[in-house]
Design a protein around this nucleic acid. Sequence first.
DNA 1: CTGAAAGCGCTAACAG
DNA 2: CTGTTAGCGCTTTCAG
Lengths: 335, 335
Amino acid sequence: MLKKVTIYDVAREADVSLATVSRVINGSSVVKANTRDKVLAAIQRLDFKPNEIARGLATSKTTTIAIIFPQMLFAHVKDMIGGIGDVGRHLDYNVCIYTTDEIGDADPIDSVIEKVVKSRADGVILFNNEHIQHQIELVQKYKIPTVVIGKRFSDERIGSIFVDAKAIAYNIVDQYLAKGKKDIVFIDTKQNLINTQDMIQGMKEAFIKHQIHFDENKQVLPTSPQYEDSYVQLMGYFKSHKHDLVFAGYDKEAVAVVNAASDNNIKIPHDMEVIGMMNSTYASICRPTLTSVHMPIYDMGALAVRLLTKILHQEEIDTKEVTVQHLLMPRDTTM
Amino acid sequence: MLKKVTIYDVAREADVSLATVSRVINGSSVVKANTRDKVLAAIQRLDFKPNEIARGLATSKTTTIAIIFPQMLFAHVKDMIGGIGDVGRHLDYNVCIYTTDEIGDADPIDSVIEKVVKSRADGVILFNNEHIQHQIELVQKYKIPTVVIGKRFSDERIGSIFVDAKAIAYNIVDQYLAKGKKDIVFIDTKQNLINTQDMIQGMKEAFIKHQIHFDENKQVLPTSPQYEDSYVQLMGYFKSHKHDLVFAGYDKEAVAVVNAASDNNIKIPHDMEVIGMMNSTYASICRPTLTSVHMPIYDMGALAVRLLTKILHQEEIDTKEVTVQHLLMPRDTTM
DNA sequence: CTGAAAGCGCTAACAG
DNA sequence: CTGTTAGCGCTTTCAG
């Protein structure tokens, strides 16, 4: 590693004090244009890159945000990384990722949070998951500004970005019940980015409205987040089942439904309709193409870091709870 | 933000000097067991988390590695993040991600590298892509230890993790030519994690071996990395084309081939065979299920950070160029 | 085995 | 408008 050029070198080269150099790299307006140019020239000549670590120590800020998520979730949130990366870059933040849930770790979440604390990230983005409450408590203990994606939190201290999961489920179910299609099943996968409880609640309320009994044990079917596993499970399931509508928390599982049902000679959408969620490439690939609820994944990532930085900079914030819009994209698995 | 507890607080609490505290948190063996316990107790009591930033300044190490990749690549490398995250965590490294190729940025790569330099990441992982050579030069200029995933580099200064792309293509093509199936087309997508040039080279060599003319203009078909786009393009293409075999650099494009061909009434695999690459979930979802070349994506990520840390720690390294194994997974798009 | 002291590279009062 | 100086929290000689 070659000797790095420091602010001292620049100061000497430009024949000013290091304070002045510091001022120009931080855009302080009180520097004479002439001096500024001298310094800028020296910076250029020396190819000086300010050491963020040193700056971090001096300001107790790292301009780094940590994002923590269970690996499994990744397949569904890849576009979110795009949003997070883009606005992170624009706002000049570094984004550090921390994955959880590797098998074999005794206390994965706690140790991950500990790493984040040590790294002194300015803020953290969490994804809704089974352990979200625990994670939030840990993070809050260290007063790290937080926004969570995927579930509404009405908590003064944390921001949240989410879709109205209850409404999604309610509207779909309501619509089918109105048409007399009452045999409706929801496919539930663990580690839902979308709040599963809210979806089930939405289902329930639609059933209540139509005064039809809702049996959670029969109408909520848990599956593996692994396609191969859920497909096998569903191959068995559809040997003896058929419903008016099945909808799933993720497209991947909806596709498993479509394929497993089709392979059991259930004609889709004629015999059974299927709706997925996320409107991912999986939906376009599926045959018949999958009707899916579109969600602005990229935007959710972008909004999350935007909101987080607003919190960090104490900017004006209209609301810490931001609902993003969803939209049903009808394709060929529904009539 | 509450006042953070520092090493001074611990020193006072334990009634020792801060040098001693530093020694115990760094596992120096020269501390008397008795003293160590006292310090440990104090650390516990105060819930002290060493400030990595300060440590970084003092040691000029950040225990952070940067990973830089084009967003588009993400769909294909999601499992790699798992590998990178897991071993990063085990080795106690932070991993910072930097995405490139957002539209509208004048000089995206240069500015990203600049961010990495400023952040003083200890090392960097790059993914093979169109601009890889330029990226490497930039990174090398700052002497940042580097490993690249997806392409072999016989360069003293950088490590690389890759599959033998040429062999993949050669073997597949050779096998089909031997069966008399000579009409073979390769679907090329930009931003290939797998080195496309190598694959084409492998094709060529197989054709040469069989003394058959190879026409790169006709036998290499470029497509969009966006499924919807490539599907539309291929829908047009297969109105007037049909081949013995088409294989693609990614499963997603192979699926587009399968769907577009099927929708043009080409029977797969009877009329035309299709092979994808990566053995991703797309391959399992596709109907008929897609034959695909499996690659150890997770492992490539894991190996990359392992190799990088070996370089960083100056550990013994047998080779800086590590080939990972691939394996053809036959499914229903081949006979 | 432990403490004192000098940095790591930068920011931020405080003078001038 | 610019320079001086005191930290930020930790590591690392160097003494003892």
